[in-house]
Nucleic acid binder design. Structure first.
Lengths: 184, 184
DNA sequence: TTCATTTATTAACAATTGTTATCTTCGAGG
DNA sequence: CCTCGAAGATAACAATTGTTAATAAATGAA
């Protein structure tokens, strides 16, 4: 997605010269906080390599809301749309390569390329649809069923994400997840 | 929303003559199924009076996914967007007055009035945002907290909806909800 | 009104999860 | 290579929820 984005801009040499520096690529170690709860949001992130998680603090407990992997775009959507401080923290899990672009710059590019904006809104829409799916899963499935679903449909999460993050993502404690796994 | 819709069409006498019969208003008793799981979806529903619920069957158990009241538009969104059979049943809870319009007719009107289509897509977007909110609530709140939230922020649900529907909406059994209430 | 059905409460027991704590293992960094 | 901290497993007990069943209350229809 980000490549398609950049390719589009490269088509016009003038625009490319103007905007290429707006895309900041950097390598970060694991456990690096890109956006802290209560901040910004000022940036969009695209994951070149590695993975991130979105999380928040609930009564002193760290709760993971979502995972992101290579090729995905990450932003605190709700705060972005409403210009609120972010409800979430965005943090790296593995050492990762991240491309960031500021909200302002992204919007400028959207003005130049309305077709990119459309694709972008589509990402938002898909994201919300995904939330609806997850919501449904919370309603109809038990923690065990949700874990089994991850094993089948999202093995990369099982393989790459520390278990205590997965536990809070599933809505249970690490102890409970460990028990579910041993019960097989 | 539906009134605004109809008013718009009334502005043009020709269109009004053509489309007024497409809006079918009818009174239905409680527990009337408008759309059954696995069907359609062919229609959009607008609630003039009364309330509906969206539900589905999970291993023989009836689970309520969402409630709708006067003024709201109701449709099985996901099956609509993908032309799949509906995952949900739509059923009246109170005796209600419903205006329905077929998907085909609605899309025709959207072609005539793009501005109405935009408002319509906004409804979809808001709906998905609402799901994201509910998803978050499932992650961070206990059943008791979710119930207390309903009491404060959606008293109409507490007042008008039978308790066992609320229970499955909260993700618990009627017995458990009864206990939560008595624990106060 | 009366009767039948639905809805809500309560109880008893099983199953699951949360909480706290201990122990082991593994890996990163010195 | 070693040390220290993080991550996962396990245990013991408390709290919550699910399940089943019996009962009471409320609702609707004849």
């Amino acid at each position: 997605m980000i490549d398609q984005f950049i390719d589009k801009i490269k088509e016009d040499e003038t625009n490319w010269v103007k905007y290429k520096d707006k895309f900041i690529q950097r390598d970060i170690p694991a456990k690096t906080i890109l956006l802290a709860e209560g901040e910004g949001p000022t940036y969009f992130y695209f994951i070149k390599k590695g993975c991130l998680r979105m999380c928040f603090d609930k009564d002193g407990k760290d709760i993971t809301y979502q995972f992101f992997f290579e090729g995905q775009a990450v932003a605190s959507i709700d705060s972005l749309l409403n210009n609120n401080p972010s409800m979430f923290t965005i943090e790296s899990i593995e050492p990762s390569t991240i491309i960031s672009i500021s909200k302002v710059d992204l919007y400028e590019i959207h003005k130049l390329y309305p077709e990119l904006k459309e694709g972008f809104q589509n990402i938002l829409f898909q994201r919300f649809r995904n939330y609806a799916q997850l919501f449904l899963s919370r309603i109809k499935d038990t923690p065990k069923e949700r874990y089994d679903d991850l094993v089948v449909n999202h093995p990369e999460i099982i393989r790459r994400i520390p278990q205590h993050y997965i536990a809070s993502y599933l809505g249970i404690t690490p102890v409970s997840l460990s028990r579910i796994r041993s019960r097989k």
